[in-house]
Amino acid sequence: MAAAAAAGAGPEMVRGQVFDVGPRYTNLSYIGEGAYGMVCSAYDNVNKVRVAIKKISPFEHQTYCQRTLREIKILLRFRHENIIGINDIIRAPTIEQMKDVYIVQDLMETDLYKLLKTQHLSNDHICYFLYQILRGLKYIHSANVLHRDLKPSNLLLNTTCDLKICDFGLARVADPDHDHTGFLTEYVATRWYRAPEIMLNSKGYTKSIDIWSVGCILAEMLSNRPIFPGKHYLDQLNHILGILGSPSQEDLNCIINLKARNYLLSLPHKNKVPWNRLFPNADSKALDLLDKMLTFNPHKRIEVEQALAHPYLEQYYDPSDEPIAEAPFKFDMELDDLPKEKLKELIFEETARFQPGYRS
């Protein structure tokens, strides 16, 4: 834990890192770190609560700039109880001085990944967590956004079992017609939660990839272990087919990539493993919904509104309290091709509203 900075004593240090967030945020305490930044909790002297502050230093890398800009653009436009918001952003007053960006968010005690390492969940908890994931996802999908990296560590939890989806750095506007060349190379989302079509096709992607990830998360809540822990690309596919069985001819016809289709045709026939054999203690309604989410063919996979209306979630289902976005989200430009200098300018502009004396 960093010592509390005395008023006016300059930035606090946390594990050798400068955290320049005073005077409003003090009493910093280390939480963890990701690929390009550290997260601390801090005391907000204005709202009198502890908050989470993520320090991001992305400006050396085009990919990190892209992810940072995506996350900020999306989260500043989203407003939903099951999606983490941005409360404040701290950065230098000029673009030349801006080396880091500090993002202030609600402090959540833990995440689903940490929880599943230590606790076996009751059916009631599984049901409530799944409902909140789908409630947040309904809003995301209504904005025409794909999260693309749903996994237990991106689901934040607090002691009252509130759940918030975080990390929109890989999110995209849904565009089933656009052929994202190089899709697989830039697709760094965790393999275990990846839909089979991501490994088999490169053309376009749809909201059904997020539903697949939610199915993987439900299976993990039922058993405290990942359902498809593939060691590499082909191993991942083999794990999936080992449980779902061989795809039907109709399902194979959806695979545009001939090499991928021929690979699947070359494999020995596998039978589907019954879900109640894998999860003998699970609620039968939970397994019915799991089956509809972990469907090989993305066109037959359940959609988020149908999933919310499934009998497993009937005690929570309330369409009048499951809000959607006001308007579909649009990125003005494809960020993939922009140089990091341009992305830095866009991050600077996007964060201006939090600067003292800002006038829109």
Rank of each mutant, 00 (worst) to 15 (best):
K342T: 11
R277C: 10
I211W: 07
S29E: 04
G136C: 12
L343H: 09
G85D: 13
L222G: 09
E303M: 01
G32W: 01
T160A: 06
N158S: 13
D251Q: 11
G204Q: 07
L287Q: 14
V304T: 05
L290A: 07
D124T: 15
P93L: 12
S266P: 00
A307D: 13
I240S: 00
V214S: 11
D177R: 08
K207Y: 11
T295K: 05
R148S: 08
A4I: 00
Q355H: 13
H120A: 14
V273H: 06
L163N: 06
P274M: 04
K55V: 09
A4V: 12
S208I: 07
A3L: 00
G85W: 00
K151T: 13
N276C: 03
L294M: 12
A5L: 05
Q17W: 01
L252N: 00
W212G: 09
D336N: 13
I198F: 15
F168W: 09
G245R: 10
L107Q: 14
I83V: 11
R135H: 08
M38K: 15
Q315T: 02
K292H: 03
I227E: 03
D149M: 07
S142H: 06
H120D: 06
L76F: 02
Y113L: 13
C127W: 00
M38C: 15
Q315M: 01
K73V: 09
R148L: 14
G32S: 12
Y64K: 15
V188F: 13
L150A: 02
C166K: 08
F296E: 00
V104R: 06
R24Y: 03
L116A: 04
S248P: 05
H180Y: 11
K330I: 10
L218F: 06
H141R: 01
A4W: 02
Q62I: 13
E186K: 12
H125M: 03
L155E: 03
D175N: 12
I103L: 12
V173Q: 07
R24W: 01
E322F: 06
W192N: 04
V46L: 12
L112Q: 14
A143Y: 00
P311Y: 12
T185G: 10
G22H: 05
G230I: 00
V214E: 15
L346A: 06
S57G: 14
G204R: 13
H180W: 11
P23W: 00
K292G: 07
A42N: 00
L265P: 10
D321C: 05
R359I: 11
M108W: 07
P226D: 06
D44T: 13
A309E: 06
E109M: 05
L137T: 05
Y113W: 03
A260T: 12
M108Q: 01
Q66I: 04
M221Q: 02
L115Y: 03
I165P: 03
N297S: 13
E349H: 07
A9P: 09
K207V: 06
S142Y: 05
Y233F: 15
I84H: 08
E71D: 12
A7N: 03
